[in-house]
Design a protein around this nucleic acid. Structure first.
Lengths: 194, 194
DNA sequence: GTCTATAGAATGATAGAC
DNA sequence: GTCTATCATTCTATAGAC
């Protein structure tokens, strides 16, 4: 029997409680200091254990970064699947974008790291499962074109959201209000439902 | 005699040739690996000298990062002064934005670092001269409002530019074409001349 | 302005006991 | 799952000669 619908999910093994504690601490530290600016000692201190205990959960620092990126990308998987289910490519993008706005607001603090940290950028391009996921994401984001205009539009859309959500100027705006404003401005850039 | 028009310029001492070589190498490396991911050894190797020679030009790594940020922000100074000279705040923003697009395209590779690297973000907020410069920049970017809507708009504008310019999807689009596309999308968000 | 040499701390990572 | 102890390497930074 040929394998069914290849699922978009990225998750490897389910994470133990100890692993989850490490990933939570790592995400917070990395969001504040970047991947290279975060040491295993800092992570261990934040969890309240020694470095050796952290190394028992993940063999290398890279594995922590991969696991944490995986966990965050997985939050996009449902949105991406819903988008890919749409027949109309423009409609697919609408679905994706509205979901992405919500996720971005939910993860305000971490968005910038995940999109712009040089280590993660490299990982996204070189680690095969990520690369595949990202190119699906770009596919849905491109709408119905692939020319220069469409690519600039897609690039902008992927960035505007994260930037709009993490910018110091909007730090004191609460989630619900921010969401409304961002969606309003997004409608000026592309068609969005409602 | 009271001091004349406070200039926007950030530059301290003019840089020697040796200092310029260090800053050029540092900017390129930091753009690729981030501040924390770039060591003085890497910079020294790129320049073709030893670490000690680099330390002779700048007392600390922080000083290098400050000098290099200073140099990049200075490129915005003229645009900011021109904007502040305008009486109409909306017109001032137009002037600023068109200049910023050009600069962003010119420095495509470095934009992301300067806007999103955690070390530089912190520097921009804590180093006094930078903090002052940035708040002037935000002032001009805000146009005539200061409420939540205006702040989200400003955040989106600053995001459109940087993201549209550095995204992998647009890497192969040449400067002139990219410039036209970006300006076209910016006009959907705000009024821009021509 | 550049070098060699080095100090002292922190880094990622491992071995082995409990 | 966590610890102590350790290793080799790299890091920022300095002293002093040329």
């Amino acid at each position: 029997m040929v394998s069914a619908e290849p699922t978009v999910r990225l998750t490897g093994a389910p994470r133990s409680a100890a692993q989850t504690r490490v990933l939570d601490a790592a995400l917070e530290l990395i969001s504040a200091h970047g991947v290279s600016g975060t040491s295993l000692q800092m992570i261990a201190d934040a969890v309240g254990v020694t470095k050796a205990a952290v190394y028992h959960q993940f063999k290398t620092k890279d594995e922590i970064v991969i696991a944490l990126t995986e966990r965050e990308l997985d939050r996009l998987a449902d949105a991406l699947e819903a988008a890919e289910a749409e027949e109309d490519r423009v409609r697919a993008r609408e679905v994706l974008l509205t979901c992405v706005v919500d996720l971005a607001i939910e993860r305000r603090g971490a968005v910038s790291t995940l999109q712009f940290d040089p280590v993660i950028v490299r990982l996204l391009a070189e680690h095969k499962p990520f690369e595949q996921f990202i190119s699906r994401l770009y596919g849905a984001l491109l709408g119905d074109g692939t020319g220069a205009a469409a690519r600039v539009e897609a690039a902008m859309l992927s960035g505007v959201i994260s930037t709009a959500v993490m910018h110091p100027l909007v730090a004191d705006i609460d989630d619900d209000e921010l969401r409304e404003h961002v969606l309003r401005y997004m409608r000026r850039l592309v068609d969005l439902p409602e």
